[in-house]
Design a protein around this nucleic acid. Structure first.
Length: 515
RNA sequence: GCUCCCAUCGUCUAGUGGCCUAGGACGCUGGCCUCUCACGCCGGUAACAGGGGUUCGAAUCCCCUUGGGAGCGCCA
């Protein structure tokens, strides 16, 4: 094995001449998303997944999913499934991973225990790793004193030079021990980060670190790096919180003679206040977004532009998003989550979705234990979508319109009521009389009404609109959002949607309420 | 505490020494369209964190300050 000093792909150092040639570039690109199922995915996590997916797609490579459930994680099954659902929902289908398998399985770290054994013993037998008997308590104290003395809270190397007989004896006594990776002193680790450029780390800043816990389970640094290598991952795109972890993983991989992936560390997503994403600052989980009625492509279009930029500002499908994705177009500063921009992409997504799909979408969720479809008469589904699609951003909005337009009877809101009262019952009496001709088009009807009532403009249309589209559903205003009578689609479109019978009924309803 | 990363309109960003009187998108806002809201179209608002250098010339390069983020764990 060459020295620990490592250079990426420059040939400018003597060290690099000793290195095994980097073969990654000849392999097809393989990216991965390796979440730890300790909770629901949030925007930041899923953005990392998206970028990895996009990069794989772009290069016609492979996107791999691996569950990092090294710990005995409570409820990880539940979260793992939730994650898979989130990824599928967004369309980030993985080519290898849980549920679908692949050549490098299993894809849950908890099931990979036996695979790590040989790597541990390889390291141990060559003296590159050593058992450490320090107790957690002992380490905590040492960390504290180091911190108090103004030194980094690094492992002191206490068990570094334990003699073999010593180690034997302590094992014989049954003392628990972790396995620590021995970090060479006085070396530097260099690599080229695909978004941050050349990186240089001194090994002196890195303490010997635990690669196997005293209970025998592998630690994150270890299995994460090993798995990437043996699963053939060529490009690791992950949050910048892992940037300073990277040299440790590079050292490990080099010590084991495993292939190194390329690394790209992306800036984290922060909340509107600039603080890390958290539920407290209003950051939503992917699940909440989905349940809130956001369309998957709205989320992708937003996320792909959060800390990343495209030349075109047009709405794109996943394919196009992938084609034009570019690591060098990634910002290096943390990006803030801004819901108004997500909402913008939601509106764009709606524009790019067919009536059929929107109908399914607006019925995908029960609102107040009811569905949009419970209001809209059979056969009028698509027409309904067509009429209201420009006026909605959520399934709730569609639900309100369905109620407004098709509910058994109207309860007018204040504006509607006043428009109706202002017109007077005589207006609606005449409106009903004019309506006798059921072959009338909206235009000819309005013409006639205009002559009969001697009204025009607002005083003619507003009462009609009020009578036909009524008011907001009272129950909806309880769900947190307050809906006002928000006018809505062209009257002509509403007219055609409602049909003769309903229009008649609405007009007489209006007439009765004026008294 | 130490090490590292980052810093352009309110937000996402373009910008890699002259093309910058700093461009685009979202938001906000004025107008047009119009029976209303939305859509659409046309306009407006608004930024190089601060201070020093380097240079004929700096948003762009260097240093310091400030502010934000991360790492230093038997967490991942």
């Amino acid at each position: 094995m060459a020295g620990l000093s490592y250079r990426w792909d420059y040939a400018e150092s003597a060290d690099s001449a000793n290195m095994a040639p980097c073969t990654m570039t000849s392999r097809p690109i393989k990216t991965r998303f390796a979440p730890s199922p300790t909770g629901l995915l949030h925007l930041g996590n899923i953005r990392t997944a998206l970028f990895n997916f996009l990069l794989a797609r772009q290069a016609q490579g492979l996107f791999l999913l691996r569950l990092e459930d090294t710990d005995a994680m409570r409820g990880h099954e539940k979260y793992a499934r939730a994650m898979e659902l989130d990824l599928r929902w967004l369309g980030l289908d993985w080519d290898e991973g849980p549920e679908i398998g692949g050549r490098h399985g299993p894809y849950a770290q908890s099931e990979r225990g036996p695979l790590y054994k040989e790597y541990f013993s390889s390291l141990e037998s060559r003296g590159l790793a050593y058992p450490c008997f320090c107790s957690e308590h002992e380490l905590a104290i040492s960390r504290k004193t180091a911190l108090a003395a103004g030194r980094p809270p690094r492992y002191t190397g206490k068990c570094r030079a334990l003699s073999a007989p010593d180690v034997q004896a302590r094992f014989a006594r049954g003392e628990p021990a972790t396995l620590r990776f021995r970090v060479d002193e006085g070396k530097t680790i260099e690599f080229e980060d695909k978004v941050r450029g050349p990186q240089i780390f001194r090994t002196d800043d890195i303490g010997d670190y635990v690669i196997r816990r005293s209970d025998g389970t592998p630690a994150f640094f270890f299995c994460n790096a090993i798995d990437d290598a043996i699963m053939g991952v060529t490009l690791v795109v992950r949050g910048e919180d892992h940037l300073t972890n990277t040299p440790r993983q590079i050292m490990l991989l080099q010590a084991l003679g495993l292939p190194l992936p390329e690394y790209a560390h992306i800036a984290l997503v922060v909340g509107a206040d600039g603080a890390p994403l958290s539920k407290r600052t209003g950051s939503k989980s992917v699940q909440e977004l989905r349940e809130g009625g956001f369309l998957p492509l709205a989320v992708s279009n937003y996320l792909a532009r959060l800390g990343h930029t495209y030349d075109a500002s047009a709405f794109m499908d996943l394919e196009t998003l992938a084609e034009n994705f570019n690591l060098s177009r990634l910002g290096r500063a943390p990006a803030r989550y801004d819901e108004s921009q997500l909402v913008y992409w939601q509106k764009e997504a709606i524009k790019h979705t067919s009536n059929e799909e929107l109908w399914v979408w607006m019925n995908s969720k029960a609102i107040l234990s009811s569905y949009v479809s419970s209001f809209v008469p059979k056969g009028k589904e698509l027409l309904f979508v067509k009429v209201i699609r420009d006026n909605i951003t959520t399934p709730e909005d569609a639900f309100i319109w369905a109620g407004n337009l098709f509910a058994e009877s109207h309860k007018y809101d204040r504006d509607a009521k006043s428009a109706i009262d202002k017109a007077g019952s005589d207006f609606f009496k005449k409106a009903l009389e004019c309506f006798n001709n059921d072959t009338a088009t909206f235009h000819s009807y309005v013409k006639m009404l205009e002559i009969v009532t001697n009204k025009k403009g607002k005083s003619l249309y507003m009462p009609l609109r009020a009578a036909l589209s009524g008011e907001v559903n009272e129950l909806i205003s309880q769900s947190g959002r307050v809906y006002e009578w928000n006018h809505g689609p062209q009257l002509e479109a509403i007219w055609e949607l409602l049909g003769v019978d309903l229009i008649k009924r609405r007009l007489s309803e209006a007439k009765t309420t004026t008294k």
